[in-house]
Amino acid sequence: MNAYTQATFQAVVDAIFPIGRHPGQYAIEAFVRQQIDRSQFIPAGDDPPSPIEPLSFSTAKLLDIGASALIERGLATHPIQRGRYPGGGWFASLSRIDRLRAITILNQVAVPMESLPIPYRDNPGLVQTIMDSLHQLTMFGYDSEWMGCGTTRLLPPNEQRVEYVPPSWCQTGYPGPAFGYRALRCSSTAAAWPRGNGHG
């Protein structure tokens, strides 16, 4: 991960879910990057494997192309502010609403497909899938227990442990995992019990 990718994804998360600049926001940014990189298809059969650019880095470049298209077409509604997210490019320099508009331009595939970075080049379906995923992953990162995994949150899923109460648990009143919660169950025996025998 480099400063450019980090700044770009911080700008993504802040546009989709503007919760303010505090550690929770940056945790969500790391979650979104991590999930996008884990979804990357890596061709088999390379010996040794050829270096492949992380999908999050390609996505950051893609977002900058969307931002450049917005600016060049005179569609930016607020002043460009370089340094808004240090290390970021054009996308990170846009206001929140303009960042969302840049994502919309990409989701509508309203940019020259041949100019996009691999693996997005000439692949409109993948562009749309990732643009939709940015919204979904941002919200999932906030609503899931991943925020409470603390020092283990960047480990593989089977090694993650909840270290403190995630914000979403407090918002929903969820008391946390425990044995013995009461639940309404309908067993096959009860459902098949003959009627008219005095048992209800």
Rank of each mutant, 00 (worst) to 15 (best):
G198W: 00
G200T: 04
I80A: 03
D64A: 05
P157C: 12
V162F: 06
E159D: 08
Q171A: 13
G196E: 04
F41A: 14
R82E: 15
L134D: 01
S56Y: 14
F91I: 00
A27G: 09
P23R: 12
V13A: 15
A27F: 04
G20W: 14
C170W: 04
I52Y: 07
F140H: 08
A178Q: 15
L154E: 10
S93V: 02
T104K: 02
I19V: 14
G180V: 01
F41E: 15
S93W: 06
P112Q: 14
S50D: 12
P166F: 07
S93L: 05
L184P: 04
I71N: 07
E145P: 09
A60S: 07
A192E: 12
L134T: 00
T172R: 13
Q10Y: 13
I118D: 04
I16T: 07
W169S: 08
Q160P: 00
R82A: 15
I36R: 09
P86T: 10
L70I: 02
M139G: 12
G89C: 07
G200D: 09
F140Q: 10
R33V: 12
G20Q: 08
V32M: 07
G83K: 07
L55H: 15
Q25D: 05
E29R: 05
A7M: 07
R185P: 03
G83Y: 01
Q6E: 12
A30K: 13
A69H: 04
L154T: 03
I36Y: 12
A183Y: 03
W169F: 07
G74N: 13
R99L: 03
P175G: 08
D46V: 01
A76L: 12
Q35Y: 01
H199C: 11
Y26C: 02
P79A: 10
C149F: 03
E29D: 09
G83N: 06
S144F: 11
G180M: 03
F9S: 02
A69S: 10
P117N: 07
M139P: 04
Q128I: 14
N123Y: 11
G24Q: 12
G24F: 10
M139R: 13
T59R: 01
H135R: 05
Q34C: 08
I65P: 01
D64G: 03
L137N: 06
F17P: 02
I130L: 10
Q171H: 09
T172I: 10
A15K: 08
L134Q: 01
T8V: 12
I19K: 13
M1A: 10
G180D: 12
A60Y: 01
S133F: 07
V162W: 06
A76H: 09
I16C: 00
R21D: 14
I130P: 00
N158W: 05
G173E: 04
L134R: 00
Q34A: 09
A44T: 13
G24P: 06
G20C: 11
L126H: 11
F57M: 08
N123S: 10
L100E: 07
S188K: 08
G66M: 08
T152G: 02
L134F: 00
